[in-house]
């Protein structure tokens, strides 16, 4: 438990000591143990405690998809997930996808490379969520056509309007995966 002292009070505080719950997660392949209050979201756990800020907060209400991560291979909005409810889960964030790419001998995960090549991003803030969502879409194995990709990616908003390039990047990776 984090017991750094702020302003004479413990960050953990009285509430935490009575209500905090011990969990463990495997985040990007590494087991991590936490003692956390039940109201901490997976998103805030990743960003504020693990400093894995690649996962973004764009609305905190499950409406924009910027916080999309893979939990046991499935894409979820991490802002809507309480961390304690995911005890024992395998969590992959954008930082972990890069590692997967590196393990395969590439600099980047194929989706990451395709996003760069197709300029499927501008400000980059929705990008980690788009990429994790796309990996989830590939894992699901339902979407094949560009229309299906567009439909199935519609939970991930992009205010810069990179949608056509994102669809092109996802299609490129989908088609390569199909021909393998």
């Amino acid at each position: 438990m984090d017991t750094r002292v702020f302003g004479g009070t413990s960050q953990a505080g009285a509430a935490q000591s009575s209500e905090a719950i011990g969990i463990s997660l495997v985040i990007n392949g590494r087991r991590r143990d936490f003692v956390i209050e039940p109201w901490v979201t997976l998103l805030d756990l990743l960003r504020e405690q693990e400093h894995l800020t690649g996962t973004k907060k764009g609305c905190d209400h499950g409406q924009c998809g910027a916080c999309t991560v893979l939990v046991d291979g499935k894409r979820i909005n991490s802002c809507l997930a309480l961390a304690v409810a995911r005890d024992g889960a395998q969590v992959t964030t954008i930082e972990g996808l890069a590692c997967e790419g590196l393990a395969e001998g590439h600099g980047l995960h194929p989706l990451q490379q395709a996003f760069v090549d197709h300029d499927a991003l501008q400000c980059g803030y929705c990008t980690p969520g788009q990429i994790c969502s796309a990996q989830g879409l590939i894992n699901e194995g339902h979407a094949r056509s560009r229309d299906e990709v567009r439909e199935s990616m519609s939970g991930n908003l992009c205010r810069c309007g990179a949608y056509t390039n994102i669809a092109a990047a996802v299609m490129e990776v989908l088609e390569k995966a199909d021909t393998r």
Partner: peptide, 9 residues
Amino acid sequence: DGVAKVTGQ
């Protein structure tokens, strides 16, 4: 800056 953005860095 694409790589920094697609890797969450």
